[in-house]
């Protein structure tokens, strides 16, 4: 841990509002401790900007533990930066060396419009969930069905859990050349399709969620795998195969559409 502090050059995307034109602005930051997180480095820079009478850089962040899915910076061309399976908030400055230039942009996708600087609007994800990403069971009353009444094969439960760990950050969309939301959506479809509780609605769910994704303007999937490579939660691209299978099956057997 005895690295000495480093100096960096940042090229940060600044955009006053959704309708304004943006541009890169260069900032020099010195005395960066390798023990800092990437966002703490931004905190230090922002404190300086405020003291100098400038507008601090707006970015989304909250839990800083890699689980809320708020943080969303495109660093040196890669969503969430250089570390594998790591959100920006968990990226630490050990990842960089003295003299590096770091380019920081917001997520770039038509369906995620920029709000300000590095903040984007990801409400399209909420609307995809609204289209069917749930089990239609009412709360407060499950008719006395005990939680252990339906055993679930451990392998299936584990696979469902692995898909359910998606944090909805949108890195998959940002990495995709077509800005497709397939990895995000397939994670939810898989999670629920793999469990007996989600099975009754699996056909409608997949059809409705795909329709909503298309409506939101996300692109098509060509199975390149960039999404999987950058996903901070290592959501597997196998989920997309499962989604396709679910979609085909539903499309061929549901006759009401």
């Amino acid at each position: 841990m005895d690295h000495s502090n480093i100096s960096l050059t940042l090229e940060v995307w600044r955009q006053e509002s959704a309708s304004a034109n943006g541009k890169f602005v260069t900032y020099k930051v010195d005395d960066v401790s390798p023990e800092m997180s990437f966002l703490e480095m931004f905190d230090v820079l922002n404190e300086r900007l405020i003291r100098e009478g400038q507008d601090p850089i707006a970015f989304d962040h909250d839990c800083r533990e890699g689980i809320c899915g708020s943080c969303s910076m495109h660093i040196n061309g890669r969503p969430h930066g250089p570390w594998h399976a790591t959100t920006v908030c968990q990226l630490h400055m050990r990842a960089f060396k003295n003299g590096d230039t770091i380019v920081v942009e917001p997520w770039r996708a038509k369906s995620f419009p920029v709000i300000k600087d590095l903040m984007v609007d990801r409400s399209a994800f909420d609307r995809i969930i609204q289209a069917g990403g749930y089990v239609s069971v009412n709360t407060g009353n499950v008719n006395g069905v005990d939680a252990n009444a339906i055993p679930v094969e451990k392998d299936k439960a584990d696979t469902a859990f692995a898909a359910a760990t998606c944090i909805g950050c949108g890195a998959c969309v940002a990495a995709c050349k077509n800005s497709s939301a397939m990895l995000f959506m397939s994670a939810k479809v898989s999670h629920l399709a793999l469990l007996p509780q989600g099975a009754p609605e699996r056909k409608d769910r997949v059809l409705n969620m795909v329709a909503q994704m298309d409506k939101e303007g996300f692109g098509s999937c060509t199975f390149t795998g960039a999404c999987e490579a950058v996903c901070p939660k290592e959501i597997s691209i196998t989920n997309i195969s499962r989604l396709n299978k679910e979609y085909l099956n539903a499309g061929m057997t549901v006759d009401k559409r």
């Binding site: 709360t139 439960a157 999670h191």
Partner: peptide, 19 residues
């Protein structure tokens, strides 16, 4: 727990399939 399982919350399970 009943409620959450019904919603599809993927709790950890044993090889028996039980929670």
């Amino acid at each position: 727990i009943d409620q959450c399982v019904a919603q599809g919350v993927p709790f950890a399970r044993e090889y028996s399939g039980l929670l």
